[in-house]
Amino acid sequence: MKKHILIFSIISVFFGCKNDKKDNGKLNIVTTTTMITDLAKNIGGDYVNVQGLMGSGVDPHLYKASEGDVSKLVNADIIFYNGLHLEGKLVEVFEKMEKSNKTPIALAEEIDKSTLIGSDYFASNYDPHVWFNIEYFKLFANKVTKVLSEKDPENAANYIENEKIFLSKLDALQEQIKATIETLPQEKRILVTAHDAFNYFGKNYGFEVVGLQGLSTATEAGVQDVQKLAAFIIEKNVKAIFVESSVPKRTIEALQAAVKSKGHEVTIGGTLYSDALGNAGTIEGTYIGMFEYNVNTIVNALK
């Protein structure tokens, strides 16, 4: 509690001070999730400094701002975050900032809400895992490009060119993913994971998606949830279930044990990247690499 009060005290003092200076001639950008960090680096290139608050394996649903995060936010020229209550614990911080000269930019605001997947169990009433729809991520890219160009018009042409290159890579990714998934028969496209992070993926590629937890990992799965999902796995003859990198493995292990207790077997097909990318410097540490890895892991395990 004392730490929480200290953070807001620091915010109150520093956010009253205007800070529009660039570090070494480059814009200072702060991002929340690793997906947005990767996006900002792709668009900004060598013309920006990008600092992400969250690292690999970090659960954005439960993430709380530290004193170090406040320092990053204070010195930021631009702040990008997902929105739709994904970064639930940071909402108060962002609201405080909106009363100052800093206005964090929620990239999900670019999406037509009528196309979003709703939920009766999540605070925003929308599924926030929108990056699993590549068309939505293209909208994110467009917004980042627009904001950077407006803030730094001298390098606008460079940002626009970087966006063009990145979008072409996303187009290629979509074609590759489609081809890979087409090798998996429709009746085998049942994706069981730790929590409901893959609904947009499922909607786009014809998967029935079932999560042990809800849209937010802040909601814990109970015994009845485990038993109900175990019965579903047996009924549908699901061959594999999946761990998520940002959710404790024990939830899926408990599900596997529940299936076994009923005289059936289900394998753990691998670890998927859901709310965070892989380690920096790896293929899975990029948005495109993460998507490729996830699809290959899913298809290979369910075949």
Rank of each mutant, 00 (worst) to 15 (best):
A172Q: 04
E220T: 07
T251H: 08
G263Q: 10
P185A: 09
T282K: 08
T193Y: 00
E161M: 10
H129F: 05
M35Y: 06
T33Q: 04
G281Y: 11
N237S: 13
A179D: 15
E95K: 12
Y287V: 05
I252P: 03
T37A: 14
S119F: 09
K143D: 06
V299W: 03
I105V: 08
N300K: 14
D225M: 07
G52C: 05
K96C: 13
E98F: 03
M35K: 04
Q174C: 04
E265A: 12
T251E: 04
K96T: 09
A301I: 07
E235C: 11
I190F: 02
E150Y: 02
K146F: 11
I111W: 05
S66Y: 15
K236I: 10
T34K: 07
E220D: 14
N199R: 15
H85C: 01
L84Q: 00
I134R: 02
R189F: 07
E95D: 14
N82R: 04
D23W: 13
D38Q: 06
R189H: 05
A106F: 05
K41E: 15
Y273R: 11
L212E: 04
G88H: 07
S246R: 03
E135D: 14
T34N: 08
L191S: 04
D112W: 07
S119P: 09
V74L: 13
A65T: 13
G269N: 09
T145A: 06
V209I: 09
V192M: 03
E135I: 01
V48L: 12
Q213D: 07
A231F: 04
L90K: 02
T193K: 00
F291A: 07
D275M: 06
T282F: 05
K262M: 13
P128G: 08
D127Q: 09
K203Q: 10
L191F: 10
Y200P: 02
A257D: 10
E95T: 03
N204R: 11
F242W: 03
A218M: 01
E253Q: 09
I7L: 10
E187W: 02
G222T: 13
L84C: 01
L53W: 06
S9E: 14
V209R: 04
I134A: 10
D59M: 11
V247M: 09
N75P: 05
K26W: 10
G68P: 11
G45S: 12
I78G: 02
T267A: 15
Y126V: 04
E182W: 08
E150A: 10
A157Q: 15
A231R: 14
K3F: 01
G278N: 11
G57Y: 09
N24Q: 15
N19F: 15
N133D: 15
E284Q: 14
I234M: 10
V266E: 08
P104I: 01
L86K: 00
K96W: 05
D152S: 12
G16I: 15
S71Y: 15
L73P: 02
E67R: 14
G55E: 12
V50P: 08
K143F: 06
D112M: 12
H129R: 04
A276M: 09
G206C: 13
A156I: 03
D20V: 07
F8A: 05
K228Y: 08
G55L: 13
G45L: 12
F94Q: 02
I190S: 00
D196V: 05
F132C: 02
G281M: 06
H61R: 10
E175N: 11
N199P: 01
A194E: 03
L229N: 07
T34G: 13
G270Y: 10
E175F: 00
T251I: 11
K143T: 01
K96Y: 13
K188Y: 10
